[in-house]
Design a protein around this nucleic acid. Structure first.
Lengths: 102, 102
DNA sequence: AAAACCTATCGTACATTTGCGATAAGGAAT
DNA sequence: ATTCCTTATCGCAAATGTACGATAGGTTTT
């Protein structure tokens, strides 16, 4: 990305869809979300056991998913419980469905 | 990305979905696809007129979309006509729908 | 054959992403 | 208060992504 992109104005829907797509653009994050879909919720540690990646790497992916709004974390000391953010999940779903439909 | 990722094996669906998501992970490419959805097809030059980006940049985005299988190019000398690849479009649509549909 | 047109590719610059180990930060348990 | 457990963050290295101008390649037209 370079200077020009800063200035380009896309429609809101286009930017939102691109951001959600970016969050899904890595197999590890898809795997995390699939796991969350099955379990409803899970802890970071669960994922570290399941995925062959360093704890710090997984934490980073979780952060990106959280930034994208697709998941949310809840403090359950000493752990953190991650769940899918249903509201934004629906929003993303609708954006993708509308995009492909037509 | 570094050494480790090469070795990680994800499920086929997971990798495919991530690749499609990656193709959609930039607003310019979403805009190109929306344009193609409306016009059914279009030429590279049409996009250069519509998007505030260099011709080479747009060509590059088209290449990525083609690599992802979402579009296809047909020679209509001296132009090239790009259309959505319906088969893969459906495939991507199904992957996303199934993914979100819990 | 030359000129004109359209598009792809090359080379470069810079930003972002991905991964890791090491370390910090927080509460829980001893 | 110290130790333990869990997770986030930092700092680094390597790979990828994004953008541009310049150039090459291929067809059509003159």
């Amino acid at each position: 990305m370079k200077r020009t992109l800063e200035n380009i104005k896309y429609k809101k829907n286009t930017e939102e869809l691109a951001l959600f797509a970016k969050a899904l653009a890595h197999p590890t994050r898809i795997a995390i979300l699939r796991h969350l879909e099955n379990q409803t919720c899970c802890y970071t540690g669960d994922l570290v056991d399941v995925l062959p990646l360093a704890q710090s790497t997984i934490s980073q992916h979780l952060k990106e998913l959280k930034n994208a709004g697709l998941i949310q974390g809840e403090l359950k000391p000493p752990k953190i419980k991650y769940c899918i953010n249903q509201e934004n999940w629906e929003k993303a779903k609708n954006l993708f469905v509308n995009f492909f439909e037509k």
